[in-house]
């Protein structure tokens, strides 16, 4: 690890006050409203939330993948080792994306070029960024496919995406994203389209590669079970904002935001407690054409107070090392005690 890296050990990638909006015929959608987070070296940060909460838009902004127009990053910075990478011209952006930050997508079938062989798609990355010759790049592509445990990598490199299964395509996409040894890998719902058995294989491959390649991972998912398996830290997003963030155990065992609580209770546990009925979160997320003045979760929250409708909560810090915060008025010292919810002053689980 160089001295340069050492200085940014805890914050390889830092996102500050990110705001993204989209102009549509119906008006302006405020998809991301003031998001802050950072990722440390070798760490996995999971961003969870339901469809439309802004989790994908957040990472697409970092990668410069937001189509402009209609999209627009209206405020904020994303710093890779201290250098802002938002709103860069394509030529500048190409120096880091695919090189320093790799990305894999939810649907490997539509994310790869159907008219190019898998091997050529991976070597293209190497030829563009690392200026390798075609022969060298092709050899490295086979080695990368081998690294992601694709059997008969040499034969497979000469095949087209349609000849691959979903799980194999996801491996190929991981191989491609690793081509330039990125320090950050962004995985946007990498296993949502896959079966549990293949999901387990891909997640284990990612964990292993994270260790051998010393990568940070930003994992976007809606599946809390995947979060539990993979994450060191978790950011819970709702209506374009991070409503709770903390270490994985804090989020699961000391959930401090009613939305996090709601997500947990809406899922069946694997314990033998069949009598317990699932508790759905009633209603649907707010319209981000005109986001509510107060808390985005107000309309669905079982503990909503009058204050929540008009005023957004601040981020209340709940752990001594300030890793855990909840953006909810129930964490205010004068708020009523709420059953089941972790509140400031409660005993920590461990």
């Amino acid at each position: 690890m160089s001295d340069m890296d050492d200085a940014y050990k805890d914050k390889i990638l830092e996102v500050e006050n990110l705001n993204v909006e989209f102009s549509t015929y119906g008006g302006v959608v405020q998809a991301v409203r003031g998001v802050n987070f950072s990722v440390g070296r070798g760490e996995t940060l999971a961003i969870v939330g339901e469809s439309g909460c802004g989790k994908s838009v957040t990472v697409q902004s970092i990668m410069g993948l937001i189509p402009t127009p209609p999209g627009k990053i209206t405020a904020g910075e994303a710093r890779l080792r201290g250098n802002n990478i938002l709103n860069l011209p394509a030529k500048e952006a190409n120096k880091f994306r695919g090189v320093e930050i790799g990305m894999i997508f939810q649907d490997p079938m539509t994310s790869l070029n159907p008219t190019m062989t898998i091997g050529d798609q991976i070597s293209e990355t190497l030829m563009v960024h690392r200026h390798l010759s075609y022969a060298d790049a092709s050899a490295k592509a086979v080695a990368l496919l081998d690294k992601t445990r694709i059997p008969e990598a040499k034969k497979r490199a000469a095949q087209y995406p349609f000849e691959f299964s979903g799980g194999m395509l996801q491996r190929a996409m991981i191989a491609q994203s690793l081509a330039c040894n990125p320090s950050v890998l962004i995985a946007d719902e990498p296993t949502t389209a896959l079966d549990v058995t293949i999901q387990a294989q891909i997640l284990e491959l990612m964990s292993e590669l994270q260790k051998t390649e010393d990568m940070s991972i930003i994992l976007i998912t809606h599946d809390l079970a995947v979060v539990a398996k993979m994450a060191d830290r978790v950011a819970v997003m709702y209506a374009g904002q991070i409503v709770e963030m903390g270490a994985v155990d804090e989020i699961f065992y000391e959930s401090a935001h009613p939305y996090t609580m709601g997500l947990k209770e809406a899922m069946p546990s694997n314990r033998n407690d069949r009598a317990k009925k699932l508790t759905p979160i009633e209603g649907s997320p707010p319209d981000l054409f005109s986001p509510p003045a107060g808390c985005g979760y107000y309309a669905r929250c079982p503990h909503a107070m009058k204050l929540c409708e008009t005023k957004q909560s601040e981020e209340f810090i709940l752990s001594s090392n300030s890793s855990h915060f909840s953006k909810c008025w129930l964490q205010h010292p004068e708020a009523p005690k709420t059953d089941g919810l972790f509140q400031a002053g409660d005993e920590h689980a461990s």
Partner: peptide, 20 residues
């Protein structure tokens, strides 16, 4: 069933990884 993750980090850390 071994491949099926559950929303519980402690159980996930204790899990034997014998994926199919």
């Amino acid at each position: 069933i071994e491949s099926n993750p559950e929303p519980d980090p402690k159980a996930e850390r204790a899990r034997q990884h014998a994926s199919i």
